[in-house]
């Protein structure tokens, strides 16, 4: 099956990979709303959640269009959940919500980093920072995609991500070079999240296929830019980069940490309990 995946399916999986990162990270960040350390930052971080959510929606809408253009056999082979299988059997066209709310965890392709819990402000900042640094260079490159829709989404998203990377870098520096306690907490958070960064720039099957088509981004080329940017901020923050860390991976292939299941249980609860309704 894997070998026979044609390019339209690879492009769909590639789109979902980006969309799932945006949705899951946006979902995590949205958990802060109403619980931030100070009112101004509660509002600021929620803006970020809304950006990610907006990106996810554009990408899912595009993914749904791609999915609906596949033939019935291809459609049947893609997603496992009974909910989607039954919609597909009925010949229904899918939309953004079907993709977000009716796939099970093994059909989600987000990286492990974004599904990690918020814990505290330092862990949240660390997760955003490590991801934003990737996302910034990723969207910068994706603007050159031969696929016009992806290029347009990248163009729009890059403006948002440029602000995200500024926000999260500043917080890494503030906490790293703040009090003794904040320094300790920030370093710990970077250490603990570091193992999830390797996957960001590891080429999946869809990444490779789309790079060859001129649609996707060369993650190997981004890796060094990512490293440089991360290193310079970490240095300014008087923190150190963790050494010799084992890198975890699996998200892009549909293998996840235990956290994703709980995220989906909450995210998808309404659509599961009351299927096929308008909200």
């Amino acid at each position: 099956m894997t070998n026979s995946k044609n390019m339209s399916i690879q492009k769909l999986l590639y789109t979902l990979q980006i969309a799932d990162n945006a949705l899951i990270l946006g979902h995590r960040i949205s958990e802060w709303c109403g619980h931030g350390p100070v009112l101004e930052q509660d509002i600021a971080i929620t803006n970020t959640a809304l950006d990610h959510l907006g990106q996810a929606r554009s990408l899912y809408q595009y993914a749904a269009t791609q999915f609906n253009a596949l033939n019935q056999e291809e459609k049947k082979g893609l997603f496992v959940s009974s909910a989607l299988q039954s919609l597909i059997a009925q010949g229904k066209l899918l939309d953004e919500d079907d993709l977000a709310y009716l796939r099970d965890g093994w059909d989600f392709r987000n990286v492990w980093l974004v599904e990690q819990p918020n814990k505290d402000w330092a862990y949240t900042v660390a997760r955003s920072f490590l991801y934003d640094c990737f996302n910034y260079f990723f969207y910068t490159e994706l603007r050159n995609s031969k696929d016009e829709t992806l290029a347009a989404i990248a163009e729009k998203s890059l403006k948002e991500v440029t602000y995200h990377i500024r926000w999260s870098s500043e917080w890494v520096i503030r906490l790293g070079d703040g009090t003794e306690e904040s320094h300790k907490r920030m370093q710990q958070a970077i250490n603990d999240r570091w193992a999830y960064t390797g996957e960001l720039v590891k080429m999946s099957e869809a990444d490779t296929a789309m790079l060859a088509e001129g649609v996707g981004v060369d993650l190997n080329a981004i890796a060094s830019q990512w490293q440089e940017r991360v290193a310079s901020v970490i240095e300014e923050a008087t923190l150190t980069i963790p050494q010799d860390t084992w890198m975890q991976e699996g998200g892009k292939e549909g293998r996840h940490t235990e956290h994703l299941g709980y995220i989906l249980a909450e995210l998808q609860f309404m659509q599961r309990a009351y299927p096929n309704m308008e909200w």
Binding site: E31, G54, R57, Y101, L267
Partner: peptide, 10 residues
């Protein structure tokens, strides 16, 4: 975290 659609969530 439990809004029933992406639009409602946003």
């Amino acid at each position: 975290t439990r809004a029933p659609s992406l639009r409602r969530k946003a």
